[in-house]
């Protein structure tokens, strides 16, 4: 397994955000984590990236314990993260944002190749190349956040709510892109409010309920499960 999380507990002060969750992501997979607001989805990704220190439990990436590493070392280990709310650098141009995405890399030609690849996936970013990221639309910023996370050429890409706040048409585009990135060899762990779409694109899924994993399994069986349908897919549609 590329990523193995075991009994992960995370707290904010006295509040327990994650109450011993375990999950795995295999090389080449798209795995999705779905659940209501406050269930602990974002905390899970932040713990993987080292932005939240786990209280206990372990996170292994490619067989190596990463739960005590600094965020910068985790990026170097091969994990990219497009955070919730996009978090692009607002007063920097698209170009500078992408350059920062490649901060851990030194070989100029590789960085140029990666930039070309990102601009190929998101032609819109090419048009906006010299524009300050803070002046772009939400959808453009989302593309930039994903593209920027790809610049470190991660083996595992963490995507936190990539479709949040986007128009239905852009949501479709983002999901097409997620498939495309995966098809080019990047493993993806995806958090989504849009459970239906997420389960359609993923091979496996986990359902998080108030800090614990409530259901897990193949994406198709989760999508068919009565409990999941009732809670997350808007009833037995």
């Amino acid at each position: 397994m590329l990523l193995e999380i075991e009994n992960l507990v995370a707290r904010y002060g006295r509040i327990t955000a994650l109450n011993g969750i375990s999950l795995t992501v295999g090389e080449g997979e798209i795995v999705t984590l779905i659940g209501a607001n406050g269930a602990g989805k974002t905390t899970t990704l932040r713990a993987i990236s080292g932005l939240v220190r786990p209280a206990s439990g372990s996170i292994r990436f490619d067989g190596r314990e990463i739960d005590r590493l600094a965020p910068s070392e985790i990026v170097r280990a091969g994990i990219g993260h497009a955070p919730e709310g996009r978090h692009v650098f607002p007063r920097m141009t698209v170009r500078e944002n992408l350059e920062l995405g490649a901060y851990t890399r030194r070989v100029r030609s590789e960085i140029a190749d990666e930039t070309a690849r990102v601009l190929d996936i998101f032609p819109r970013l090419k048009e906006r190349y010299a524009q300050k990221a803070g002046t772009m639309s939400g959808g453009e910023q989302q593309m930039l956040a994903i593209g920027r996370a790809m610049m470190s050429r991660p083996r595992l890409l963490l995507l936190d709510e990539p479709s949040l706040g986007l128009s239905p048409k852009l949501v479709q585009t983002i999901f097409v892109v997620i498939r495309e990135i995966n098809a080019r060899g990047t493993t993806i762990l995806l958090i989504e409010q849009n459970a239906r779409q997420a389960l359609a694109v993923a091979s496996r899924g986990y359902v998080l309920e108030v800090g614990s994993i409530a259901h897990s399994g193949a994406a198709s069986s989760l999508a068919a499960s009565e409990a999941v349908r009732a809670a997350y897919l808007g009833g037995a549609a």
Binding site: L51, P71, H81, P83, V88, R91, M92, R148, A149, S152
Partner: peptide, 17 residues
């Protein structure tokens, strides 16, 4: 650039490595 990135968004800067 790292300084400017850190000034603009610390979490995102960390995610850049």
């Amino acid at each position: 650039k790292a300084m400017r990135a850190t000034a603009q968004d610390k979490d995102a800067a960390q995610l850049m490595g």
